[in-house]
Nucleic acid binder design. Sequence first.
DNA 1: TCGGCATATGAAATCGGTTTCACGTTCAAA
DNA 2: TTTGAACGTGAAACCGATTTCATATGCCGA
Lengths: 345, 345
Amino acid sequence: MKSVSRSKRATIYDVAAAARVSTATVSRYLRGYDRITAEKKKRIQQAIAALDFEPHPIARSLALPIKRTLGLLIMRGSRAYADLFLAEILSGVTRAASALELSLMISVPSASSEIPSVVERIRRVVDGSLLLDVSLGDQTVRKLAAGGHPILLVNQVHSRIPSVSIDNYLGGKTAAEYLVKLGHTRIACLAGDTSISRQRLDGYLSGLAEGGLRPAEVVGCAFDREKARRAFRKIIKRRKPPTALLVASDWMAVGVLEEARALGVEIPRDLSVIGFDDAIIAETTVPALTTIRQPLERLGAEAVETLWGFVTKTEKTPGSSRKRFSEKSLAPKLVVRQSTAPPQL
Amino acid sequence: MKSVSRSKRATIYDVAAAARVSTATVSRYLRGYDRITAEKKKRIQQAIAALDFEPHPIARSLALPIKRTLGLLIMRGSRAYADLFLAEILSGVTRAASALELSLMISVPSASSEIPSVVERIRRVVDGSLLLDVSLGDQTVRKLAAGGHPILLVNQVHSRIPSVSIDNYLGGKTAAEYLVKLGHTRIACLAGDTSISRQRLDGYLSGLAEGGLRPAEVVGCAFDREKARRAFRKIIKRRKPPTALLVASDWMAVGVLEEARALGVEIPRDLSVIGFDDAIIAETTVPALTTIRQPLERLGAEAVETLWGFVTKTEKTPGSSRKRFSEKSLAPKLVVRQSTAPPQL
DNA sequence: TCGGCATATGAAATCGGTTTCACGTTCAAA
DNA sequence: TTTGAACGTGAAACCGATTTCATATGCCGA
């Protein structure tokens, strides 16, 4: 609203001169130190308003130990990146960052082994980093841990690094319970090959167990549409095929749906299929996919808030309690669409 | 590889002391000034290596006029954001940024009217900003233009702001030409309601015209699956329905496919459908969608390179040629899948 | 009335670089 | 041999904040 931005803005020296005080006093005012004479305080306020002064963020970063900036590292081509996850997580991340008045520095390494060097490069510019959906090798973790740079894993877990993620176990359990509730008894699982899908599978098993069931079959394959398609072919050709199928991801479920159509298996009449993720395609498959929705927007927001908590806490407490380990997980939610139904009698 | 990062790193003063020269000389060396005695140069190099010195980016930003950082503004909920576009553009942006050794500061305003204030906030930290897929009001444009901050519109155009975008006209023309080549003569267009879809429509018309054809019908509707579905219902109920349909976006085409299935219209036998965007779902619709693929990865890379060009050019030439206007557009490409075929005889 | 303590404030140092300016050398031209 | 232009170099100023340290002032109780 003020003057339409001349190229050089007022500095704290200009303000100090205009208010007839020292820069120290102006700085104190800016930082909320309150024992300043009312008279001078008022002059400072007026000077700031008149000059349209705003502290230079770079100068401030140089002088202060914290920069109010977080790093955001996303693996090129990661699942989060490839699915629509990215947009949703990013939405939460940016919303929370903006609420806390934090800046975000983004970087997209192309291999997880690059991460330590990326962190090394940006650590003097950011207060901490979010690692989005990367799985880390031990070597990498060791370097990172040694760095003394606050790090938070998002949508991934590791035994030695704090994380915020989706409760995949609970999601799996929810999915299984739903099929049980529908009345299915011959339920197969199409599991993925990552640690995340292992958790989902454990959830499936526990959900089935609570209903007094054991899976008709458990098949593992790569987290991939084409592989899932082939794996499904085997499952459905059994003498007594299952009436319901728990699939570890929506993209894998898409493969299942395709193969089912090709084989003339009608869904959900002949087979109920439930996916996981609520990926962008879940709504538009034929039939639309019942799935487990991940609260990704909240995941992103939670991540920023948690990491910022680390940063400020570490700052205040230079003391001992170093490795206050933290692992938080959010509950996913069942989304019922058209790929599930009670079993045919 | 060096010492595993102690918390305080060496400064230029340490290097100067170790090399027995002044900081001025070290700085000259760092900045590539070459008239330094071989002897001292070597001592400096050794000192830098021994101390694992790296200039502090914040201190450097404070002293130098350029910061080697670009702002990346993405509208919350924009199309780029919601489709998978984001991931692909971002991939190009980050690849190019990393090649130029630039940092990226990301921000996600929730309305285009917020953009000037966001720019105002980050302008002292970045050298220029990429505006991803935002359409700007005149008010907003005026503020931005007055700011004297390098700005580049990505995937959008405006008469007063430089831009990099997709050649939607050419894409439309390519799509139309393909249908003509297949032998279709009764071709309808389902256009969107944005300026981008207007360009696509113009391309359709020109492609048809070159084949000596005029569209059987042109219907406009919102850029939305449900709306497209309804609009398509009207088109297909004509006495002489078209044998092919040009649809302004893949998501609209999804609506068309759904309605076609509901009405028993078989695609591509009864009707060829061609979308636009090559959105993530294009590959998984039934049948898979023939569409126009946008070179989004290249778009992102081109954007960074172009904006950086502005920044460095402006820096070197403080002179006159202020408004060197630039508008670049990239050619999209036809991707043939299963939703198109020659017309039934 | 005086010592002592809390309070308000400014001068100067600091963060970690870059660059100007001035000075002493060297080397070529006059 | 003198002149002076080009070169290498360091001291100090600068970028724009924050913070320490020291001082001046006011207020208290003795």
